[in-house]
Amino acid sequence: MASAPSIVAQMLEQLDVQSGHRILEIGAGTGYNATLPAHLAGPDGYVTTLDIDEDLVDTAGHGLAAVGYGTVHVVCGDGEYGHSDGAPYDRLIVTAGAWDVPPPWSDQLTTGGRIAVPLRVRGLTRSVALERADGVCAYGLHREQPADR
């Protein structure tokens, strides 16, 4: 099942991918979602997509290669542990359900790195962005406050 386009766009906006970023996606699915940050990161960027289902990994790899995104690294593994072989990442996006942020996700981010994740809390799922600072991930994007505050 694919996410609604508005949710995909919201998560990409939260992720704030820049040219040259190294990105980890948890939940490869068809591979489509991996093409979006790969496009935004450009030819100097690097995307790894990870899924626990070997059949999905094979399908995603073939699909990505067929549409010209063969440079996206597709890995079979448990997303709870991230993918330390490609770390550190500038961005991590979770396209699978989550009710927590496992320590390996923040451990595999650069300082200032960002996670976009659909967290399920008390029966509701909301996409949140977390930034890594001082070794931990915190909610919010640390935006500047207006001068009159």
Rank of each mutant, 00 (worst) to 15 (best):
A9S: 12
E13A: 14
Q18F: 14
Q18S: 10
S19L: 15
H21G: 06
R22V: 09
L24P: 06
E25N: 10
I26V: 15
I26W: 10
G27K: 01
A28D: 12
A34D: 08
T35C: 13
T35L: 08
A41T: 07
G42T: 07
P43W: 00
P43T: 10
D44W: 06
D44I: 00
G45S: 08
Y46K: 11
T48Y: 13
T49C: 04
T49Q: 02
L50P: 04
L50E: 07
D51C: 02
D51E: 04
I52F: 12
E54Y: 09
T59E: 14
A60I: 08
G61K: 15
L64K: 03
V67S: 10
V67L: 05
V75W: 01
C76D: 06
G77T: 02
G77R: 04
G77L: 02
G79I: 04
G79L: 02
Y81I: 10
H83C: 08
D85R: 06
G86C: 01
P88L: 01
P88D: 04
D90T: 07
D90Y: 09
D90Q: 03
D90I: 01
A96S: 10
A96C: 08
G97W: 01
A98M: 06
A98D: 11
D100W: 09
P104G: 03
P104N: 03
W105V: 00
T111C: 08
T111W: 10
I115H: 07
L119N: 02
R120N: 10
V121P: 01
V121S: 04
V121L: 02
V121D: 08
G123C: 00
L124N: 03
T125Q: 02
R126L: 07
S127E: 09
E131L: 14
R132T: 07
A133G: 11
D134W: 00
G135M: 01
G135R: 01
G135T: 09
V136M: 06
L141V: 09
H142Y: 13
H142R: 14
H142M: 12
E144S: 15
P146V: 10
A147W: 11
D148T: 07
R149K: 08
R149E: 15
R149V: 15
